[in-house]
């Protein structure tokens, strides 16, 4: 009789333990920080000082959307969301003209993001650039 109760207690404890494991597993996995960069970006490391030479541009991902960082000829950086304000094509940096260019309808923006010629109806959405040592971080405009 006593043995049966003991066995039952053991089975009860064992199965409780196993089940608790199936509950704790997701909890522990949840609490471990995921390796991937957060989608809810406020800051993104866009490039480094050594990666980009003056008078060059680079497309990078700002959250889920493409963005463009430009290193001006004087070595300073400026960054924008890369979608053209005309019809959503991705813009690019033109070293020869030191302008941002949309190939779709020949729209040009200056390095302040202002639409200077062609169809674009308004300036590019600007981002903010922060330097941290050798790294160049980009954040949403505050």
């Amino acid at each position: 009789m006593l043995d049966r109760r003991r066995i039952l207690n053991w089975l009860l404890g064992g199965s409780a333990f196993a089940w608790a494991g199936s509950v704790l597993h997701p909890v522990i996995r949840f609490l471990m920080p995921p390796p991937e960069q957060e989608a809810a970006v406020s800051a993104v490391k866009a490039t480094t000082l050594t990666e980009m030479t003056p008078n060059s541009g680079k497309i990078f991902k700002f959250g889920r959307k493409p963005a463009l960082i430009v290193r001006r000829s004087d070595g300073t950086f400026t960054a924008f969301m890369a979608k053209c304000t005309h019809l959503d094509c991705i813009v690019q940096y033109r070293e020869d003209k030191e302008r941002i260019w949309c190939a779709c309808h020949d729209g040009f923006y200056d390095l302040n993001g202002t639409n200077v010629s062609g169809p674009p109806p308004r300036p590019l959405d600007a981002l903010e650039v922060h330097m941290q040592g050798d790294d160049v971080y980009v954040t949403r405009k505050s």
Binding site: P26, V27, R29, F30, M32, P34, E36, E38, A39, A40, V41, G63
Partner: peptide
């Protein structure tokens, strides 16, 4: 919004919690 989407999409078992 983006952080909730992150929880649902990227955090392991985030959708479950």
């Amino acid at each position: 919004f983006a952080s909730v989407r992150f929880i649902s999409a990227k955090v392991p078992f985030g959708w479950l919690i």
